Computed example of a mutant assay.
Amino acid sequence: MPDKPAAEVQVHEQLVRALISSQATAIPDAATLPLAHAADGWDCSVWRLGDDFAVRLPRRALSAPLVLHEQAVLPSIAARLAPSGVGVPAPIVSGRPELGYPWPWSVVPWFDGTAGLGIPRADRAGWATPLAEALLALHVPAPPDHPVNSVRGVPLARRADAVAGRMESLRGRVSDVVLERAGGLWAAGLHAPPWSGGPRWIHGDLHPGNLIARGSHLVAIIDFGDVTGGDPAYDLAVAWLAFDQAGRSSFRAAAGDGYDEATWTRAHAWAAAFTLLLLDRTDDDPEYATLAADALQELSG
């Protein structure tokens, strides 16, 4: 992915410690637990608190509503996914603006493991059944007041111009064979019957970077900031983004009759669109460069 946006507020240890001391009263000894910076993503600065918790604080104003979405919907989603054994970062503390920090923030569980991007595809087959079970539990009807996202889980036709523009941008930079393959999958998705079952809860950004695992054991799905209601095919694109052929077959088998063939066709199209997105951007992150290259190969399967 391209370089992440600059932070609009400096998140430093003194600030995080002060917010925790003031508001994280639900966590015993929170004010004195060890605190260490873990990572800065596109949207949030993440700090590890003790052994069991993470503190997520938006780095920019555009990210603040995403934290509110997580705080509103993740408790019920976590409860539904619990039988699958896949964790969800449901907020333990829903923090409010204070001490000069302008946005909501959260304390969530810390999941021991690594982002799935660093785990070879051949080692991911063990994720297939728990991930399928988690998505079947997630993809239930969303209420009318679900968070709205203008690009995630929408009918493919709404994104046709954007995908066509991306293909044109890539012309001459990647082979015509690649564009023909991806374009064919996208066209098949456009011609498949659209989703007609009403909005279902979807993660909205499901790829290996948002899966936490320990080798072949899937631990958690994280980063629900784009959670919304829409076509579950958008999430099912993970079949090509995360798995090799064997893992993908296990994933589809574990999903059983939860999704019809048209939904899988649209999912294949969304996987092609996401791969084109990765290819179209200057990529400074070797793990996402590898994801783009691997996904490109998997689109044929």
Rank of each mutant, 00 (worst) to 15 (best):
L57F: 10
P58I: 03
P58L: 05
R60K: 10
R60N: 09
R60M: 14
A61C: 10
A61D: 09
A61H: 12
A61G: 09
L62D: 14
S63D: 09
S63R: 14
A64V: 12
A64K: 14
P65Y: 09
P65Q: 11
L66T: 06
L66N: 08
H69W: 10
H69K: 15
E70F: 02
Q71T: 10
Q71A: 15
A72R: 05
A72G: 05
A72H: 05
V73D: 13
P75D: 03
S76C: 12
S76P: 14
I77P: 04
I77S: 02
I77D: 00
A78F: 01
A78M: 02
A79F: 08
A79C: 07
A79H: 11
R80S: 05
R80Y: 07
R80D: 04
L81I: 03
L81D: 02
S84P: 09
S84I: 07
G85T: 00
G85D: 02
V86P: 10
V86W: 11
V86F: 08
V86R: 14
G87F: 07
G87Y: 07
V88I: 02
P89F: 14
P89G: 14
P89N: 11
P89H: 14
A90K: 03
A90S: 03
P91Y: 01
P91R: 00
P91Q: 01
P91T: 01
P91L: 01
S94H: 06
S94F: 04
S94P: 15
G95T: 06
R96H: 15
R96S: 12
R96N: 08
R96G: 10
R96Y: 15
P97V: 00
P97I: 01
E98V: 01
E98P: 03
E98Q: 06
L99G: 00
Y101G: 04
Y101S: 05
P102I: 00
W103N: 02
P104E: 08
P104Y: 13
W105C: 05
S106G: 09
S106F: 09
V107I: 11
V107H: 13
V108G: 07
P109W: 06
W110V: 11
F111R: 09
D112W: 08
D112E: 13
A115E: 13
A115Q: 12
L117V: 04
L117I: 05
G118E: 12
G118S: 15
I119P: 01
P120E: 04
P120M: 05
R121N: 13
R121A: 15
R121K: 15
A122I: 03
D123W: 11
D123S: 13
D123M: 15
R124F: 02
R124Q: 02
A125M: 10
G126F: 00
W127V: 13
W127H: 09
A128Y: 03
A128P: 02
A128I: 00
A128S: 02
T129F: 15
T129W: 12
T129N: 12
P130H: 02
L131D: 07
L131V: 06
L131K: 10
L131F: 09
L131P: 07
A132G: 12
A132R: 11
A132I: 08
E133N: 06
A134P: 04
L135F: 07
L135I: 04
L136M: 12
A137C: 05
L138F: 06
L138K: 06
L138Y: 05
H139Y: 13
H139G: 07
H139P: 13
H139Q: 08
V140H: 15
V140L: 15
A142G: 01
A142C: 01
P143I: 00
P143D: 01
P143H: 04
